[in-house]
């Protein structure tokens, strides 16, 4: 059994480094529901001293991340030790346009897949994805909303899919005139959907349908 060794507090709570206070609280509750003494999901999985250690680490992660000052100090430490990119330090600053190659550009594809998958445990995310798939016309805004709910950056999609940031943004912003046509667009949509782990065929169909709908109706 692997312990939490080598994981950051963010990894332990299963959240991206730019999570809000509320997201941290929710994540803490979810993680406790898995690791608590009375959790059926880990019944008899860990020897009790091991479970105690895991719970202590979770407690430490939570108490650090909900305390503004402690969190900043922790983030600095992560950056100094090279565990995350320094862009997380700019979290407090006012919203800038999405920076190219945001913090997580070293994320391996596997990590991303795992992160997205874990996010789908949340009802909110599941519901959103179901909702999008039930639509006849799918807009870039839908995709953007899902991506944000899952908590991944455009730059991360770019790193894994190699689709250019400009195209990914154009997809999300419905800038159809900036998009390639036919075959290429389909492929880009497919890659994008696969990262979000949502039915790519439905997304392609709905998105293309939306383009012709918008173009017809001006």
């Amino acid at each position: 059994m692997k312990s939490f060794a080598g994981l950051t507090y963010y990894d332990i709570l299963n959240i991206p480094a730019n999570s809000s206070f509320i997201e941290i609280k929710r994540a803490y509750r979810d993680v406790l529901a898995i690791y608590n003494d009375d959790s059926l999901a880990t019944y008899a999985l860990f020897p009790s001293d091991e479970r105690d250690n895991l719970l202590k680490t979770i407690e430490g992660a939570f108490s650090t991340l909900i305390d503004k000052g402690k969190r900043v100090a922790y983030d600095r430490m992560l950056v100094r030790s090279g565990q995350v990119d320094k862009s997380i330090l700019s979290r407090e600053e006012k919203k800038k346009p999405i920076p190219l190659f945001h913090g997580k550009n070293l994320t391996k594809e596997d990590d991303l897949v795992g992160r997205v998958k874990r996010k789908y445990i949340e009802k909110k995310v599941k519901k959103l994805s179901k909702n999008i798939l039930s639509k006849d016309l799918i807009s870039g805004n839908d995709l953007e909303a899902l991506r944000k709910a899952i908590g991944i950056e455009i730059s991360e999609i770019h790193v894994v899919t190699k689709v250019s940031i400009a195209v990914l943004k154009a997809i999300e912003n419905n800038q159809f005139e900036d998009l390639p046509s036919g075959f290429y667009l389909r492929n880009f949509l497919k890659s994008y959907s696969e990262i979000l782990q949502i039915d790519s065929q439905k997304i392609i169909d709905g998105y293309l349908k939306n383009i012709s709908h918008v173009q017809k109706n001006g």
């Binding site: 692997k2 299963n14 898995i34 959790s39 059926l40 999901a41 445990i121």
Partner: peptide
């Protein structure tokens, strides 16, 4: 029964086994 039980087991196993 908790509907997410299986998802939780999946998460925890993916974390603690290779």
């Amino acid at each position: 029964i908790d509907e997410t039980l299986g998802d939780k087991i999946e998460t925890v196993c993916n974390r603690h086994f290779y």
